[in-house]
């Protein structure tokens, strides 16, 4: 009887081994994986002291430059970018109103988009603007086709006054939050 018991035990044990099974698996699900990270980065920073603004004279441009900016037009970025928001912050502690314009240029130098900021003289606080690109916002192709930025800053006031604020400046900050679909 004992022998029978142990034989049965042995058989059951090995039945475990040979009859192991698994629930139905669907490895094709991996195609449904959706990876959409949000990438944040500083973009363009500009600052100028009031002396430089004054030295350019009244009612004139004190800064103008075009720079290549191909981050959005890189093939991989352009293909996987779902939407994006560019955040601007402008802080003017000088004694004169200023105007800053940033233009998005394509490879031919054509202006695809532009943002203009007019900032009153100090105290004017911090001007913040968020520009959304994507569904419901500006066309995403603007970013995808941008290969350069044109930045200009102009003085809308006089060329002599100096703010009583310590170290008066115009500061232009920009950063972006971009949603990518990697998978």
């Amino acid at each position: 009887m004992k022998r029978l018991f142990y034989s049965a035990l042995l058989a059951i044990g090995f039945l475990f081994t040979v009859t192991s099974c698994t629930e139905e698996q669907d490895f094709g699900q991996i195609d449904d994986l959706n990876i959409t990270p949000t990438i944040s980065s500083g973009l363009f920073y500009f600052e100028s002291d009031e002396e430089t603004i004054n030295s350019a004279g009244p009612n004139t441009s004190f800064y103008y430059d075009e720079v290549t900016f191909e981050v959005f037009s890189e093939d991989y970025v352009a293909e996987h970018l779902l939407e994006g928001t560019i955040i601007y912050e402008i802080e003017n502690t000088t004694s004169k109103p200023l105007r800053i314009t940033i233009e998005f240029l394509n490879v031919d130098g054509r202006v695809l988009d532009a943002e203009t900021f007019t900032i009153e003289a100090d105290p004017s606080g911090i001007l913040t603007r968020e520009v959304f690109y994507g569904l419901g916002g500006k066309n995403l192709d603007i970013l995808a086709n941008t290969t350069g930025l044109r930045m200009s800053a102009g003085n809308l006031g006089d060329g002599t006054s100096v703010s009583s604020t310590d170290d008066p400046k115009i500061i232009f900050r920009s950063g972006g939050e971009f949603l990518f679909e990697l998978q």
């Binding site: 973009l43 920073y45 500009f46 100028s48 002291d49 430059d65 075009e66 720079v67 290549t68």
Partner: peptide, 21 residues
């Protein structure tokens, strides 16, 4: 890094447009 930066007056004469690169 915080992106492309331009400081005036230090960069007033820097008209290089390859700041990104």
């Amino acid at each position: 890094t915080d992106g492309i930066s331009v400081f005036l007056p230090d960069d007033i004469d820097d008209v290089d447009n390859n700041l990104w690169q």
